[in-house]
Each structure stands twice: as C-alpha cells, then as structure tokens.
Design a protein around this nucleic acid. Structure first.
Lengths: 303, 303
DNA sequence: TTATTGTCTTTTATCTGGAAAAAACAATTT
DNA sequence: AAATTGTTTTTTCCAGATAAAAGACAATAA
C-alpha cells in the first residue's frame, strides 16, 4: 500500500467539466496548468477518457465523442486526499460538541476511525497546531485546547490589530497599484450580490474572504497574510453549520464592506480606521454570539 | 528499524549529573519528573547504572558506588532526536550562505545527507514552515524563501506590534500578579550580570529570552505568546555564529532592559511605550546590521 | 492507607517500501 | 525554432511495521 490516486481522480472529474464546456481539450501542458497537475497526471486522465469512449485521442487531437454522464465521475469521496479527510472530520468535531478542553488526542485511534495511515494524522496535527487549538506534550499525546470564548477573543484581537494596519497600508497604496483595480472588481461583485441578496446570500462568505485577503496583502507582511488562514479556517468551518441569521448577518456585513471600500477610496486614515473598526466589531460580535457559552455544548451537525 | 533510543540516552546522561551531585537517587516517579521522562525510561536508566556498577540498586535504595567518569556518558551526538538533528543542520544552512531564495528543497536528499528517514524530514519541514522561511508547492517540493532583509523587517514589524501591546498589558497587571515577582527576579539577574558583564556577556541571550517571554505572556494571547518562538529561533541560531560586537551589543541591550523594567514598574503607559520602543529599535538595528546585505553572502560557520 | 516498585498494555517516533505524481529528457510534429 | 507528445527518472505521499517510550494496573513496602 502506498499513495492513493486522489489527485488523478480529482483532476479527471474536473476535466470532465472542461470537456463538457468546450467540446475538445487543449494541449497536455495547457491542461496541466489549468488543472494544476503535472503532465503525467494529465496523460492518465486522457488515457481513461479515451478508454471510456469520452474522447477520440490522437496526439494533438482530443475531440469529445459524447457528453459526460454522472456515471463518468469518480465518487467525490475518492477525490479527497487523506489530509483533507482528516481536516474536515477533525475540525468538525473540534468546533462542534464533545470537544472538552483537555481531552487528549490519540493518533492511532484517529487514523483507524478515518481509515487513513498514522503518518497522515501526525502530519495533519503538526500542520493544524498553528491554529492554536491543540498542543503537543513532548514525547506524548496532543491535547485539545478547545474552541472556547477565550480562543475567539484572542483570535479577534490579533485580527483587529493586523487588519487595521493593513487597511491603513492599503489606503496609502499608490494610485496605480493593481490592488485598486482588484478593489473595484470586488466592489462591483458586492453591488451585484447586494441586489440579489435575498437568494444569493450564501455566496457572501467566499466574497468576504477574498475581500479581507486583498486588504491583508497590502501589509506586505507574510505573517499578517498567513494569519488570515487561521481566521478563514474558523469562519469556513464554524459558519458552515451555524446558519442562524445567516442572511441578515451577511447583508449587514456586505453593507459594512461597501462603507469600508468607500473609506479606503477616500484615502483618509481616520475614515478608514473608523470603517474598519465598525466592521471588525460587528464581525467579532457575530462570532461570539454564535459560539457555545461554554465549550462543548454546541450542536453537532449530522455528517 | 524503528524509533531510536535518544530519549533514554539523554536521560541517562543527565541522570549521571544528578548522581554526581547528590550521591544517591530519589524514587522512580520523582526522577521521572525531574528528567522529564516516563518511569519506563527511568528504569532503563537505573538498570544500566546498576549494570555498569555506578549504583547499587535495590528497590528504594539507589546509592552511588563510584563517581561517573567521562566514559560513562553516551556521546552527545546520540542524545539528539532526528528532528533535532534536522533542525540544527537545516537552520544552519538556511541562515548561512548558499541559501538563495527560490532554491528548492529535496526531502529525499536531505534525509540521505543527514542519515534520517524521510518522514522525519517531512515532519520537520511542516513544523518549520510556520517560521515563514519556506513554502510548500502542493504535491511537489518545498521552496526556500530565504533569510532576507525583507524577512527580518516583517518579523520585527510584528514583534514590535506584539511587544508594545504586551508591555502595556504588563504595566496594567494587578500588583499581586506573580509576574511582578518574576520581574523582580529577572531584574536582580540583570544586575548580577551587569556587574560581571566583561566575562559573562554570553549568558545574556538566555536572560533576554526569559525576559521577553515574560512580557509577552502578559498579553494573555496565545498567538502573541507563540509568535515569540519565531523570534527566539532566529535569535538563537543567527547570533550563535554571528558574534560580531557580541559583548557591546549585549551590554547595551542589558541596560535597555533595566530601563524597560523601571518603566514597567512606573506603570506609566507613556514611559513603558517609550522604553519598549527604544529597546525594540535597537534590537531591530542590531539584527539588520548583522545580516548579509544580499541573501547568500554570509559566512558559513564551520560545523 | 499511601507512595513506590514490578509488570503488562498502549501509544508514539521513526524507518522502510512502493505506488502515484512530478520532473527531466528525448523524439516528434507544426 | 517552438511547442507538443513520448519515455524515463526522480520525488513525493502515505500505509505498514516495529522498537522506544509512555501509561495503566497490580503487587508490595513504608
């Protein structure tokens, strides 16, 4: 037993999408670039597509012979890498119930439950430790620190410090910096979403992340930029199953973003600071309200 | 092949020290606590000590029979875990020369050169990635970002932000907080070292770390506390072979610490801020001056 | 009783092996 | 020539195995 072939399966599934849209496929290197995989994987994908009669593959020609049907796709469960499987399942437990602070984490047990090797679990835990939710006892087990109110407060404290600084840096960016064009684009997306907020409110979180990452990037500081991963992880998973008031919450945040964007454009430090503070305050409130009062009494969502 | 026995060897060596100092050894659990290992390891240590005629071990009695001689110690090279071996050697290269930004890191090659398994190398790289000096390409190699001037500036920017906030929090600590007593203790150590600075200047860096960690802890924020690990790593390794002006540098810093401590005691936010700024400024200057102008032209110290 | 020792079980740390994926190289095709 | 395809080599990813170390339980001594 060795490496799984999830990269291939995932690339294959995505390639089916491309095929359906275009009717034929580009060169191997180009395909590799768009799918984010090597040519070796691209060729495996093409080989199978030819085999199953999806395309006629002759050197440069890759014409679609028929539309992909649902059966052509690999089951999504098989397109995840062990590390993705572990992350989803681990974070779900962690942010959900039954995650009393102080609980110890057993690598072997986790590996068995999830059907992955211990190496993957270990590597995941090491990677995950930077989020400040678990801690290692030297030569011994990991300990859960818990997704507590304290954690949320510590997280938001840093976030506010970093974002205020980034926003100030953003406002000071020269007029020809590409970030301004990117901000324009994001603003239009905000307006578009605002017009259809009643039905598309669930698209906000992705926009939110792109917006804040853009701001953070203006800091030109890798530690600030990287820290946004922690925030994004928490928001991504926590709100995924905490849908209370989602629509209202997103609508408010969207309007705050628009005000924030206007402030950035004004390039007036005081206005930027005020708009940024207002938004971060409400983001903090939203997070705190949606959290269990004491660790461990949140609802666990069905898998 | 499996796990090495470096924990045992290291514990054994340290236990020889205890034996020499005390003439006899305490109970197994107590010994385990002082050495930071389990009873299982303690018993292996005792067993060997009995075998080699160092102690007479009969249940509760563990009397020294003779003084440990140099031959009794395991070679220090054998007391390091693979992960420690990798860290030292990797960081040495990284902060030294031949570490052009953009260079790619080969797990297999590194493992072979250092005589360790690839798993250890992988785990090390994952752990090390939080320092912001390397970056992973998905499904591919790691890339060196380099110990550059930019890195130093980004690092110090965060450090200053965090420490100013921590220092303010420290000054606001209630009078009965144990941190004040700890500060008193550190102050005396500073005074003691100041009196003997001519000969003991090299003891400063350890004191420096303890002092700054104490300050940072007052933030009560795990992200701030954890970030000090990045700073400590850089200072630890970088200054280990950059000894230019070490004495003068340490003497200046020591005096700045004393002023900083006095400011904290005054509990006057403006004074704290000023003293903290002064020290951080000179720390930044020191780091920048001691760095190669362009990445890769530093001297590599002999191993 | 309570701490300590003796023994047994579980878990971690690390190496190895091998398939998947990437990367490098060579041969074609436009 | 420049890009694309065909082929070979290298490297990563991950499961499995195992000795070391930790932890748990039982027996014994103070």
């Amino acid at each position: 037993m060795a490496k799984g072939n999830n990269v291939y399966k995932d690339a294959y599934n995505r390639c089916l999408g491309l095929l359906e849209a275009a009717g034929s496929l580009p060169s191997e290197p180009e395909l590799g670039a768009t799918l984010g995989v090597s040519r070796t994987t691209v060729r495996s994908v093409l080989a199978r597509m030819a085999e199953t009669g999806l395309i006629a593959w002759n050197k440069r020609d890759k014409k679609a012979l028929r539309k992909p049907c649902p059966d052509d796709f690999f089951p999504v469960a098989e397109t995840d890498s062990p590390s993705e499987i572990i992350e989803r399942s681990f974070v779900r437990r962690l942010l959900g119930a039954g995650a009393e602070a102080g609980t110890q984490i057993n690598e072997l047990e986790l590996a068995r439950e999830l059907g992955v090797g211990t190496t993957s679990v270990r590597e995941f835990l090491i990677r995950f430790s930077r989020f400040g939710l678990i801690e290692k006892r030297r030569n011994s087990h990991w300990v859960l620190k818990g997704f507590t109110r304290d954690f949320a407060l510590e997280l938001t404290e840093i976030r506010e410090m970093f974002e205020l600084r980034s926003a100030a840096a953003f406002a000071a960016l020269p007029q020809d910096d590409p970030a301004w064009a990117e901000l324009d684009r994001l603003e239009s997306e905000h307006h578009a979403l605002a017009r259809a907020i009643a039905t598309r409110f669930n698209e906000f979180s992705e926009l939110d992340e792109r917006f804040h990452r853009l701001i953070h990037r203006a800091s030109l500081n890798r530690f600030i930029v990287d820290f946004y991963d922690v925030i994004a992880m928490i928001f991504h998973y926590h709100y995924q199953w905490n849908k209370a008031d989602e629509r209202q919450r997103n609508e408010t945040a969207l309007q705050e973003h628009l005000a924030y964007i206007a402030a950035l454009r004004s390039r007036d430090p005081a206005k930027v600071d005020a708009a940024c503070r207002r938004h971060l305050n409400s983001a903090r409130q939203t997070l705190l309200i949606s959290m269990p009062e004491t660790a461990g009494d949140a609802e666990i969502p069905a898998e």
